[in-house]
Amino acid sequence: MHPKLLEFLAGCRDEAPLQLGVLPFGMICGIASLAAGMPAWLAQLASAIVFSGAAQLVIVQMLAVGSGAAPIGLTAGLLGVRHVLYSVSLADYVRHLPRRWRLLLAYLLTDEAYAIAILRYQAQTAAVHQSVPGTPPGNTAPGATGDAEGSPVRDLRHWYFFGCGLTLWFTWQVSTAIGIVFGATIPADWDIDFAVPLTFIALLTLLIRERANQAAATAAALGALLLAALPYNLGLVGAIILGLMAGALSTRLARRTRLAREASQ
């Protein structure tokens, strides 16, 4: 089997378990879109264009109460800030790719796809650096992902990322369509909203292995509790900012510590 296809299928396989939480999440978005008065075709089109569960839910909820375009755009933009951080985290790994690839992966970049793909990038890059220190993140090196004779091979991890993102995209479109078509027949006592926090809890357990992520998660959690009384959900925005600051500070301190250790050697 071709190495590109192997990477793609590996991404699909590793992303698949998270679809158990994505499926009801997409159904909720489809149901909420119809409840807000959107026609079915527009709800499905929005799911394909926006492709962001949290933003889609907020948009349809604000449409339902008659919010204007400016508040809706601002709120959706704030919710999308985290994707900028994901992009920064992945930039060094995809910088060598053609623009068409970077645009495609940017479109497919979601919480779930990032959580799986970044672990793959970090694991293989760590192996590369152990074998050949100083190797750029986007490259491979002998002894890490080389062939049987130790020769370098082309980095195909973007195919893995593509598999992760496309798996989630397909599930999201199908689940939204299910919510649109069958949402009215789902009994009211089926509380499927629980899938939303469960999905993000699963992602959190994958991403808090490093100190910077642990610091960001802790600061954001404390901020959400301390600022919960603020109106207009501003406590959530404040918690995001605190988490970002804590993560950035932790990363900077870790970098300084590593450089000092290397200098002493």
Rank of each mutant, 00 (worst) to 15 (best):
A54M: 10
E112F: 07
T140Q: 06
V60H: 04
L85H: 07
P133R: 14
P142T: 03
R99P: 00
P152K: 01
A64N: 14
W101N: 02
G134K: 08
L79V: 15
V84R: 03
A144P: 00
L156A: 03
I116S: 08
I59E: 06
T135Y: 07
H96V: 03
A55N: 09
C164D: 05
A148D: 11
R102G: 11
I49Y: 02
I118P: 04
A123K: 10
T75H: 02
Y121K: 04
P98H: 12
L74G: 11
F51K: 10
P152V: 03
L79H: 03
F162H: 09
V153I: 01
P142Y: 07
Y107A: 10
Q124Y: 15
A46M: 15
R100F: 09
T75Y: 03
T125N: 14
T110Y: 09
I116C: 11
D147P: 03
G53C: 10
P136V: 08
A69S: 06
A91S: 14
N139C: 13
P137Q: 11
L63Q: 15
L85M: 15
Q124L: 15
V58A: 15
R102W: 09
S67W: 11
S52N: 12
V84N: 13
F162I: 06
D147L: 05
I59H: 04
G73Q: 06
L104D: 01
A106D: 07
A148G: 03
D147E: 04
L109C: 12
A48K: 09
Q124P: 07
G146L: 07
T135A: 13
L79D: 02
Y86V: 02
W101S: 03
L57I: 12
L105Y: 00
L97K: 00
V60A: 07
W101G: 00
A76L: 03
H83D: 02
V128W: 09
Q122H: 14
T110V: 10
Q56T: 13
S47W: 03
N139I: 01
A91L: 05
G146P: 05
A123I: 07
L79S: 09
E149W: 09
L103H: 12
R99I: 06
F161C: 00
L63R: 08
P133Q: 11
R82T: 08
A54H: 08
T135D: 10
F161L: 00
H83K: 08
L79T: 07
G134A: 10
A148V: 14
D155N: 12
L109P: 02
S47R: 02
V94H: 01
Y114M: 12
P71D: 09
I59D: 01
D92G: 15
E149Q: 15
G53L: 11
L85A: 11
M62D: 08
N139V: 05
A126Q: 14
Y93K: 00
L119C: 14
